[in-house]
Write a protein that binds this DNA or RNA. Structure first.
Lengths: 356, 356
DNA sequence: TTGTAGGCGTTATCAT
DNA sequence: ATGATAACGCCTACAA
């Protein structure tokens, strides 16, 4: 009656079918495909032969129903389109890091990517509703004061964030870098090479990375006994356009001799504005960015910047998550990856040797 | 005995539980959550109240087991890391287009992303093995002569490609642009503005996009009655580094006065090489790229290029796929999206008016 | 070492 | 309009 539905896909065999063809029971086939012990070598081979021949693959839904595991993890990127598209090397690199792990350990990767701020809550609701699709989550660019985090913790869904959490520090696993120190080093470099009017273009300040990089800027100046001029701090939201506009409208009129941008794309925007104003980089204004995207080496002048191990960030986050899921780790883990200040042409060290 | 496993997550209610709390049967609850008719308004409200209160969400695996639908689609990107990372705006934009659709229509997006050529076959095998995880697939940068395509067709898995297929043209749904015409227009523009030694840097030639753009280059020259000098055709593989090296090593010694690059990143590499050789863009050599990535507007000079509707490509592909899955469309669909030649500084129109 | 049978949480088919 | 019950395909005690 409904037999045609059942076999509409000619190659949709199940355990029972394989068992029959191999002359054994379902359980035995199950044991074989799950590599369990207590199966004789002969039986195992006999079953495997049929499995190969029929190209049999177990039904993931049926499997999940009983094991309550999906071998799928989710990656959540609520960020709106503009940022992602512009600073477009970050998320691919992060995803690549994640995927390197999931590919190796045979998990699939579900992508939860928002498209606008307005839909953020909708996205979170969908994720929570569908949480049984995944064994765990990697959260990128999430505000940790968000309800999503609280829900995940309550529902005991394993997750790892790739930013420093703003709260629950020790109860959450995360992978980040020491943004404060990195920014501090960058600004300190400006000081070391004799720059005195050092401005900064900040990232989005509702983001821990943005906050910490600004803090590093302040600390470097304070430790050097230099005043922090709030007018030299421009809000760039991590975006090229804002970096350009803030430099042109706010910073250039104040005659800075150095600009530390909290992202490479903002640094490129700043350089663009500087050039349009008829000034030179690094002779008149030195610039350091943050991220070390491929474009840093391709621009003219090449961009000095803080190298962020983005791929590694995704790789480590995914590794921790899978360990958590598989019970290889019980406790949360917090990892701080190292950064490196990469000196290129835009900060002028090759012109004016360090005098320190 | 194993009751603690069953209820380890305190909030894992099932239909039965909801039914009991609402004083109805499982079937009725099922009807309500699936918005089926033949439920009295009163009953519906009573059930919904319990559903809301308990924050109940149906188990996707159980649902999939019987409906054979997952409400998940897969996006396959076998490309190796280098290309993706450099030409990094393409895939995010494509994905964003896909996700705009899946978010709206309440599907989830599974990302199958390869990491190296060597693993390509492994990736395909995993996808085929796990095909029941998804209702359909979007294939990016796939060689259509690949066994993957044949398998998917045989298994009747719905899919849409975002390149022109090299075979099965009418049996496959795809979304592409007229690469031949677009490239032809770009080269024709060079001819129109008086350039006579026009070189090209090709994309990967095992890729239909790469092939078609080269064909367009040839056609434009032929139609203008100009000879095609094979030495002026350099293989750039879509990559920045190759674009740079080919320009420096192969093209510049031949004194071209224009270069058509099959991707923006290669165009940037070419410009870098041109500058290093002490030549000017566009005065000495005009350059046109392909893609219209954000960097096209950010470089100096700004890059003339062919605008590729990448986001739309993903959007349309996903729309077609979901229509296919939901039976709204029976036949395959082939869509050719329009491109546009965007004139900026690098091709010199603003310096040398069109003389035609 | 192998087989039997129950249950995972739904949807779908019958009755009622 | 509602309820009972049989699949869906797998894993997993438990029995043999």
């Amino acid at each position: 009656m409904n037999s045609e539905r059942i076999r509409s896909n000619p190659k949709n065999l199940n355990l029972e079918d394989i068992a029959r063809k191999a002359g054994v029971s379902r359980s035995t086939v199950s044991r074989v495909i799950n590599n369990e012990p207590y199966v004789s070598q002969r039986t195992r081979e006999k079953v495997m032969a049929v499995v190969q021949q029929e190209n049999y693959a177990p039904n993931p839904a049926a499997r999940t129903l009983v094991t309550r595991r999906t071998r799928v993890i989710g990656v959540v990127i609520p960020t709106s389109i503009q940022l992602v598209f512009e600073d477009s090397a970050y998320f691919p690199a992060l995803l690549q890091g994640v995927v390197d792990v999931t590919n190796t350990r045979d998990y699939a990767t579900l992508l939860w990517w928002g498209n606008s701020e307005a839909d953020e809550q909708t996205l979170y609701n969908r994720i929570l509703q569908q949480n049984r699709l995944m064994d765990g989550l990697i959260l990128a660019s999430i505000r940790t004061d968000d309800a999503l985090i609280a829900h995940l913790m309550r529902m005991k869904v394993p997750f790892v964030t790739v930013e420093r959490p703003t709260t629950y520090h020790s109860e959450i696993s995360y992978v980040t870098v020491d943004n404060v120190e990195a920014a501090e080093n960058a600004v300190k470099h400006f000081i070391d090479i004799g720059r005195r009017r050092i401005a900064t273009i900040t990232g989005a300040l509702n983001n821990p990375d943005g906050q910490d990089r600004l803090l590093g800027y302040r600390l470097a100046l304070e430790k050097a006994g230099m005043p922090v001029d709030e007018a030299l701090i421009a809000d760039g939201q991590f975006r090229y356009q804002t970096g350009y506009e803030m430099t042109k409208g706010q910073l250039l009129p104040l005659n800075p001799d150095a600009i530390f941008a909290a992202s490479d794309v903002m640094a490129h925007g700043a350089i663009q504005a500087i050039h349009e104003a008829g000034l030179r980089v690094p002779e008149d204004i030195a610039v350091i960015g943050f991220d070390d995207l491929p474009t840093a080496m391709q621009s003219k002048p090449t961009l000095s910047t803080v190298h962020l191990p983005v791929h590694e960030r995704g790789f480590v986050a995914a590794s921790i998550l899978l360990d958590l899921i598989e019970g290889k780790t019980q406790e949360t883990r917090q990892v701080i990856l190292p950064t490196e200040l990469v000196i290129r042409e835009s900060c002028g060290t090759h012109l004016r040797p360090v005098s320190k």
